[in-house]
Design a protein around this nucleic acid. Sequence first.
DNA 1: AAGCCGGGGCA
DNA 2: TGCCCAGGCTT
Length: 349
Amino acid sequence: MKANAFTDRLLAWYDHHGRKGLPWHRNRSAYAIWVSEIMLQQTQVSTVIPYFHRFVEHFPDIEALATGSLDEVLHYWTGLGYYARARNLHKTARIIVEQYHGRFPRDYETAQALPGIGASTAGAILAFAFGKRHVILDGNVKRVLARYHAVDGWPGERDVAARLWDLADRYTPRTRVRAYTQAIMDLGATVCRRTRPDCAHCPVRMGCRALALGTPQRYPAARPRRSLPTRTTAMIMIRDRRGRVLLQRRPPTGLWGGLWGFPECGDEDIGEWCQQALGLRVELATPWRPLRHTFSHFHLQITPIAARAVSSDQVMENPEMVWYNPNQPDERGFAAPVKRLLQQLRETT
DNA sequence: AAGCCGGGGCA
DNA sequence: TGCCCAGGCTT
């Protein structure tokens, strides 16, 4: 098969079978495409769609996003995970307003230098928004190309990644870049799936080396894995007389950075810890059943502890703390387990 | 229970 | 530059 036969067949396939009418296609603004690409970095299309709608409805353009507070942005991101991306999205919106007159940069180097936008995302945004020839290499594209050429090794390794970038570049056409880029992503998502690839319906099956070897699902090689350690924490759900619960903002970076959560303490005596760290005298109730939350690199065992504030005369001057009424939610971001616990707290009121 | 995903950040 | 970090979802 000639080098561009791959591209031609893919484009022909796309005309009949590609996904069209995705929400961020309708409106080809660089803003909508940028937001969608950041969401899609971590999550599948079907999950992203409702988040995308809520997000762009609340933040219709770069200006609105830049003007919004980080709390608001995290609120609309709650549940999507990887909150550093929401923080970067917000940061980048402000950079674009301050340095680029509110217009998304059309230049690759400039786009790529923005927080949260790397090589592949910059290529995707510029290709989709401006129809310029740029190469992308997201998870779907990596899988298609690793199979088509039976590329051994984990794409996280430098040499393997370099090989895949080289292949991606070779097949990216000069014309119909939007269609091609969407086509190869769609092929990976709907036909060349990670498990159960549908090779019978693949437009490039004739040239696929992994299929010829009979083991397409073995490509690309999986990341080498380690066993995960378990960490523990206690989340203290302190309520005042009015049923409000004490929340604390987490540090701006790191795990659940910038999100609101319950005060947490390790192995210390909880009552004493509350008095020392929070200046609150509390009465503890029986702990709830522990929750288990898994991250990519550890398990977190969470013991939720209900408590009542006894000394409610304590004045809260700290802007990083708030008495929050679970029955009157406002716009702030929560990690998934915190959101779940707040929901349960609401039900037990 | 294990795999997946693109980029940031640090030694 | 090669690791480690990050979170909720699918399989």
